[in-house]
Nucleic acid binder design. Structure first.
Lengths: 224, 224
DNA sequence: TCTAGTCTACTTGTATACTAGTGTATCTAT
DNA sequence: ATAGATACACTAGTATACAAGTAGACTAGA
């Protein structure tokens, strides 16, 4: 497992949660791996309690499976769960951007404006890493603008299923297209054009295809 | 706090979670109340650990607010959160019933059929309690039929915000209408009529109105 | 009367100890 | 050699102990 740096003042629980999440999505922790609370506590330099609490959180969305008295395992890739997370994202993103079109305040519009501007800036420099971070922030901002913050949290945790298969997809989505999508979405929000916004989200999400058959063939050991 | 009976083989954590949930929704635990992990552990006859884990869960959706080194408090009714939960339900219920129209298996159709039949049975007997339980099960069955079980869990926890103001609403929704709605939804699912199903959900949810001003006037101490 | 300080009684966060169950490897008996 | 019993090493669930911080009551002094 790849141990991240602990952020100052970060609680042990949040730390453990963050490390677990990263390692699962990046497939550093392979599906089927046993996560020992004890071992992980040692590695992180914290006690079992916060590690355990983080594991419980992730069990909630079935990305970790806990069998009493046996262990906690990284869940195998389950197409049903991938579909469930993709479904959740599509449904929520569309509904939320509509609300954002209605009620986004100038404050958030400005934040989105800056965000997209930076995306375009780093697109110029081909800094995919930065764009990835800004991408996530962009969507979070929309949820905030629509005052749907708790829902965003749920979406994030659930998206782990999808993020993890995205790690396996060779076919990288072109940054150019993504950034363009975001620019268009922002313009739609600014002009309160709900219909356009929803259509853009639909198109945006369709860029992330999930070729289950290919991935299953290439990484059969990751599937149940 | 009203202590429920512990179900055999129920884990201490699930038990604590269930008791907390019930007491918060029923307003037995009033908004603003301090929930002491220690005290609750004593009352339930378990240790702090499972109680704490239950509290963490509920903090996730902001129905409990935990301030480090100060305490965990039952959150005041926050119209923003009520709206967020109502929004989540509306968006998900509509999207999920569409899926159910597409893929509900005979097994689930049968289960729904039995469920609605029982609702009609208890409607005859005016057993509101039973209908309430069957009502919840009905919606859970639809989510299961659409293979969206994790999403249903999220919805449930988030709905606590809404369920709690529903407790305060005097205007009881008529059982007759509810049961009729359910019957119609089932028929829509059986005939794969997505449009009708979505329209029914919309109508169904509109029955649950939330007169914030009135409730706020009547119970000002429950609001922040 | 007011203010500064201190003490107490609480809280959560974290660490550790104990319990009970599971799977495996090993040993024993046939 | 094989089947069954058994010991062991691990697990998660729960209980308890300790650390660190907060709020409020109380006291002493001006």
């Amino acid at each position: 497992m790849h141990i991240l740096e602990r952020i100052p003042q970060e609680s042990a629980r949040d730390f453990a949660f963050r490390v677990l999440k990263e390692n699962i999505v990046s497939l550093e922790l392979k599906p089927g791996t046993l996560i020992s609370e004890n071992e992980m506590a040692m590695e992180l330099g914290v006690s079992r309690t916060p590690v355990r609490e983080a594991i419980i959180d992730l069990s909630k969305v079935s990305i970790i499976e806990t069998v009493p008295q046996r262990g906690s395992f990284v869940a195998y890739i389950d197409p049903k769960m991938v579909e469930e997370s993709r479904f959740l994202r599509k449904v929520l993103d569309k509904a939320v951007i509509e609300v954002a079109c209605d009620i986004a305040s100038k404050e958030y519009i400005d934040a989105l404006e800056e965000n997209v501007h930076l995306q375009e800036f780093y697109l110029e420099k081909s800094d995919t890493e930065k764009i990835f971070t800004l991408d996530n922030l962009f969507h979070e901002l929309i949820y905030s603008a629509a005052q749907k913050d708790i829902i965003y949290d749920m979406r994030s945790t659930m998206m782990l299923h999808f993020d993890r298969v995205r790690t396996l997809s060779v076919e990288a989505v072109k940054d150019l297209k993504i950034v363009n999508d975001h620019r268009s979405m922002l313009e739609a929000i600014k002009s309160h054009d709900k219909e356009a916004a929803v259509a853009l989200v639909e198109k945006h999400l369709n860029r992330y295809s999930f070729d289950e058959d290919r991935i299953r063939e290439e990484f059969p050991e990751y599937f149940k």
